[in-house]
Nucleic acid binder design. Structure first.
Length: 633
RNA sequence: GGUCUCGUAGUUCAACGGAUAGAAUAAGCGUUUCCUAAACGUUUGAUCCAGGUUCGAUUCCUGGCGAGACCA
């Protein structure tokens, strides 16, 4: 309808205004709730054109629309806005249409190009935490949304499975794991620990041992004992010590940190880890076996977590396979003059013309940096999937600069698809106590959190739910649906770009703007329709329509444009807010009228059709958010 | 030091440059002979500061103040 009026106005402009108008003149918006109208045309843009008051301009357009647009009942011009009211017939037709379209609002599957969505880039020595949950729920939801608007989607994750940090947990396990009476060190099987948790534990063990040794070294240094310390380090330490004189507390602490860094580098245990990395890179069989074994434990653990989260992937990338990629492309780009080489042999790109800095893409010793790897990986993916059109990287906003540079480099290397790469940047999740810090033990573990929300859902559901007739298994599933639904909705309803606060208390609330609130409404409609034995049939188009009923149809009609907008800006939050609005309207309606027990057949049929349509759209959008829609609760 | 992001009720979040800045929560009051009260209705409360652009600014620009991130 909006399109229709838009087009009609463009065509009629010469006759109506005496001149042609452009797209920009025609601005539609949703009518405010407290005034009459179904669609609002902003009149201000026409005022200059017509050289008259906003009120006069409004009246003029009003007369024209009322006379020429079918489906419009009448218009009201106030304060520079023209509120257009559609006929009841129009809205009933809309409802009929929604009801008869099974995947209403969705585009034809695979009608748009393939897009790869990357989310979750876990590190194999740290169990998943709250930050990962936001990342993964966000990426998974965006993937679903892109599918819904017609894209083919490849969901992927990159696993950070190599490097010095992996060697740390491997080494700590070899050194510190107790041996049981069967002569085995700790494994997930003999400890009952989840694989990722076990490995994470040894990563922490390594750090403890490192700190301890560093402390001893510093103590030696402070007492003037510099045996075993290289001269250069000794000088550096002494210089730092001198620099502390006369500085304030904060500056002194910063210097102490630098000394600590030096001490850590002198520890035997870190040296051992570095040696192990060298052996790993040389494919030492013993180290390789340990690496594959421990990574295997971690993957089992991650799989369990993903399964609980209800997410999956189509393709996995391992850094151990891709960390050597990109060097060739850099050398190639160097030949073509995209990059330049400094006298020490390192390779750089100068992006100052684009408002950015100079950026290192290959070290002087020929080793790769993250950027090198990401260049290579991106190119590699387009080789893996020849019909790939674009990529979405779901990565935290601390990498904003990195991705800006990456996309620019890919563009300069001549890859046309670079413009279809998007960094889905999301804000950090803070806790009421501040930032999550692993060192201070304030990290919220993903498994623990999910267990907690499911537990809470269980308690609450047992208290007030309608569980009769459900098997134990069905009940457990329901608790999971509610708990996780609440958690997902809580994390997704906020604009992804924004930093958000996670309050453990609120995430499992059941009232207000929450997942369970939406689920509850869905469940209630399900039983309602069941009781009514509802079968959809074409509605009579002249039935009376109450204000509450019309509001719901209006909101239903907005689903498609909301979905498209959510896909365009990669924001599940838009969909979440839309759905919440729909549910609120429906609940108001539900409380104020009779539905199943309505005696008038025509009215009853209309209200049931309305309920069925709300249920359908509600279930669809919950699904897009990764939230399940229980049929009772 | 340079670059980027963000500042909205007590709190957590909304608002293509548009009308009287919306919700939720917390607190009070009210609604079950009737379809699930995890619901509904109702009362109280906010745009960091100073300029500028505009018919109109929470939104855009400049300068402060405050929070965070990245780069050396």
């Amino acid at each position: 309808m909006e399109q229709h009026i838009h087009q009609a106005l463009l065509e009629a402009a010469p006759q109506l205004f005496g001149c042609t108008i452009t797209e920009e003149h025609i601005q539609f918006q949703q009518t405010r709730k407290d005034v009459e109208g179904d669609l609002t045309l902003v009149v201000f843009p026409f005022v200059k054109l017509l050289r008259c008051s906003p009120q006069e301009a409004g009246e003029k357009i009003k007369t024209w629309i009322e006379a020429h647009i079918t489906g419009v009942s009448h218009c009201v011009a106030i304060n520079g806005f023209l509120n257009i009211v559609f006929t009841n017939d129009y809205w009933l037709k809309q409802l009929n249409q929604i009801q008869q379209t099974p995947m209403y609002g969705f585009a034809e599957p695979a009608s748009k190009p393939t897009v790869m969505v990357e989310y979750a880039s876990p590190n194999t020595n740290k169990p998943l935490h709250l930050g990962h949950l936001r990342n993964i729920f966000l990426g998974a939801s965006v993937a679903e949304i892109l599918k819904a608007v017609g894209h083919k989607v490849v969901r992927t994750q990159v696993i950070n499975d190599r490097g010095i940090h992996i060697c740390k947990s491997m080494l700590a396990w070899e050194k510190f794991s107790p041996v049981n009476d069967k002569g085995e060190r700790e494994t997930p099987v003999n400890t009952g620990l989840k694989g990722d948790k076990l490995v994470g534990k040894y990563y922490v063990e390594f750090d403890k041992a490192l700190q301890k040794e560093a402390k001893e070294i510093i103590a030696n240094w402070l007492s003037g004992n510099f045996s075993d310390t290289p001269e250069a380090i000794k000088d550096a330490v002494l210089n730092f010590q001198k620099a502390k004189d006369g500085k304030d507390e904060k500056a002194q602490a910063a210097i102490d940190d630098k000394i600590k860094e030096l001490a850590k580098n002198q520890t035997a245990i870190l040296q051992e880890a570095k040696d192990m990395l060298v052996r790993w890179e040389a494919r030492d069989p013993q180290v390789y076996l340990l690496w594959t074994t421990m990574n295997g434990w971690v993957y089992e653990g991650f799989d369990a977590t993903y399964s609980q989260m209800g997410v999956s992937f189509d393709k996995l990338y391992y850094e151990s396979d891709t960390f050597l990629l990109g060097k060739d492309q850099v050398m190639e780009g160097l030949k073509r003059g995209v990059f330049y080489q400094k006298s020490d042999g390192s390779v750089w790109i100068d992006l100052s013309a684009d408002g950015l800095d100079e950026k290192l893409v290959l070290r002087s010793d020929g080793t790769a940096v993250y950027m090198t790897q990401d260049i290579g990986t991106a190119i590699d993916r387009f080789k893996d999937f020849p019909d790939l059109h674009g990529m979405v990287y779901t990565v935290g906003n601390e990498q904003d600069y990195h991705f800006k540079v990456l996309f620019l480099i890919l563009q300069k290397l001549g890859y046309a698809w670079a413009k279809n790469c998007f960094h889905l940047s999301y804000g950090m999740v803070d806790l009421p106590s501040g930032k999550m810090k692993s060192r201070e033990g304030t990290v919220v573990d993903a498994d623990d959190l999910m267990e907690e929300v499911i537990d809470k859902a269980k308690t609450m559901t047992q208290e007030r739910g309608h569980l009769e007739g459900l098997s134990n298994l069905e009940r457990e599933q329901l608790y999971t649906q509610i708990g996780l639904g609440g958690l997902k909705y809580y994390l997704l309803k906020v604009d992804p770009k924004k930093r958000m606060l996670f309050n453990p208390e609120e995430s499992i609330d059941l009232t207000g703007n929450t997942g369970p609130f939406l689920q509850y409404t869905h469940a209630r409609i399900c039983t309602l329709l069941e009781k009514a034995n509802y079968a959809s049939e074409t509605l009579i188009e002249t039935a009376p329509l109450q204000a509450e009923e019309k509001e719901i149809i209006k909101q239903l009609a907005l689903f498609e444009s909301t979905l498209n907008e959510a896909a365009k800006v990669y924001s599940p939050a838009l969909l979440a807010n839309y759905t919440y609005e729909l549910v609120k309207l429906y609940n108001t309606f539900y409380q104020s009228v009779k539905i199943v027990i309505e005696p008038n057949h025509e009215v009853r049929q209309l209200r049931l059709a309305l309920s069925a349509s709300v249920k359908q759209v509600l279930a669809q959008s919950l699904n897009l958010l990764g939230v399940e829609a229980p049929t009772r609760m």
